[in-house]
Computed example of a mutant assay.
Amino acid sequence: MRAIWKGAVSFGLVSVPVKLYAATESHDISFRQVHAKDGGRIKYQRVCSIDGEEVAYADIAKGYETDDGQMVILSEDDFAELPASSSREISVEKFVPREQIEPMWLEKSYYLEPDKAAAKPYALLREALKEADRVAVVTVSLRSRMTTAVLRVRDDVIVMQTMMWPDEIRQPDFGGLDAADMDVKPQELKMAKMLVETLAGDYDPSEYDDDYQEALEALVRAKLEGGEVQHLEQPKPTGGEVVDLLAALQKSVAAAKSSRGEEAAEATGSGEEAEAEEPEEKPARKSPARKTAAKAPAKKTAAKKAPAKKAAQSTSKKPAAKKTARKAS
């Protein structure tokens, strides 16, 4: 077991350093909601009921709704002002007869383990509780909230059981249960007592089995052994962020292509002339990268003189190309 809390039990001038362990655990099989067709897990979105938009965790606050539908929103600063306790002390308030503690008040149970150096005062408190046949009512701070609890002895181990607050216990309000309204006949009462005596005995937890849990585990195990399982595929990426990113990338690529096309049009002309001369411009762009000799521009000049009709209609940049060829020659 792993300790979930460390502190000390204090009664009078005695302090007993202890560790706290959860005394109970649930063995229920937990299920997930899945798609019956392929076994995929069902996901839930945090959607605002007013604007219908998905809400990020950072934008979620705690709210208290009144009976008439009004909402009081509390911030982290509001909670910071509330009285909170970080004490590591289990303070014994009084020792009371154990029959005065109603079982309904008890909530969660924890084992207390003493530190090695505190074994003697731990044993002292344990034996005192046994001899007095009492339980210790204590106050303790768990999860920054002060609560009441009782210390009792179970199998030579001190157990701490947290308790509900008095206003958390509901009062029964049923009609027709008053003894004055019930006519119980002596013979009926006698037979009821006989039934009680017939079924009287001591409680032995080993006599009771969770047959539903055992049957459920057997069912799951049989399906696993029989190969009745779903091999889950990798979930497809979905969500607004991915879609927006993809759209942004597509727009960026389109813009880059468009930008390159405009530059080519400015360099060679517009319309059909630009399309006709585009294949000839590509070797000219590659030649500087190769660092060729002066003969390469000469070829380029000859190629541009071939279409005589187009030379008269060329833009102002064609004379610049001729000048470049002369300089290279």
Rank of each mutant, 00 (worst) to 15 (best):
I73W: 02
A136I: 08
L129W: 09
E99I: 07
A117D: 05
S87P: 12
Q70K: 13
L106H: 09
A61I: 06
E76P: 07
P121E: 02
R88I: 00
A61H: 14
Q45D: 14
L129R: 14
V47A: 03
A61Q: 06
K108E: 13
D51R: 01
D68Q: 10
R46K: 15
V72S: 07
G39Q: 13
E81Q: 11
Q33Y: 09
E53S: 12
S75Y: 07
L74C: 11
V72Q: 10
S109V: 03
G63Q: 00
D77Y: 00
E107W: 07
I42L: 15
K37P: 05
V137Q: 05
I90T: 04
E81M: 06
Y110K: 03
E99G: 04
P114R: 00
L106I: 10
S87I: 04
P121I: 00
V138H: 08
I73V: 15
S86R: 02
A61M: 07
Q100F: 13
S85E: 01
K94T: 07
S91P: 02
K130N: 15
E53T: 05
A36R: 13
Y111T: 07
G40T: 12
A123R: 03
R98Q: 04
R32I: 13
V34C: 13
E127P: 01
A84Y: 07
E102A: 06
P121F: 01
V92D: 01
A58E: 15
K108A: 00
E127H: 14
L106V: 08
I50Y: 13
V72L: 13
D77T: 03
V96G: 04
M104G: 09
Q45V: 01
I90V: 06
D77E: 09
G40V: 05
E54N: 14
I101T: 06
T66K: 07
G69E: 00
Y110N: 10
A80S: 10
K108Y: 05
K94C: 04
R46G: 01
S75M: 11
Q100P: 04
V34K: 09
G39L: 10
A56K: 15
L82H: 06
G52M: 15
E89M: 04
A132W: 05
Y122K: 00
R126I: 03
R46A: 15
P83F: 05
K43Y: 00
C48Q: 05
R98N: 06
R134C: 08
I50C: 14
I101K: 12
Y110R: 09
C48W: 12
S75N: 13
D115N: 07
I90L: 12
Q45I: 01
E54S: 13
K94G: 09
I101A: 09
I50T: 14
K43N: 03
I50V: 14
R32F: 15
V55L: 04
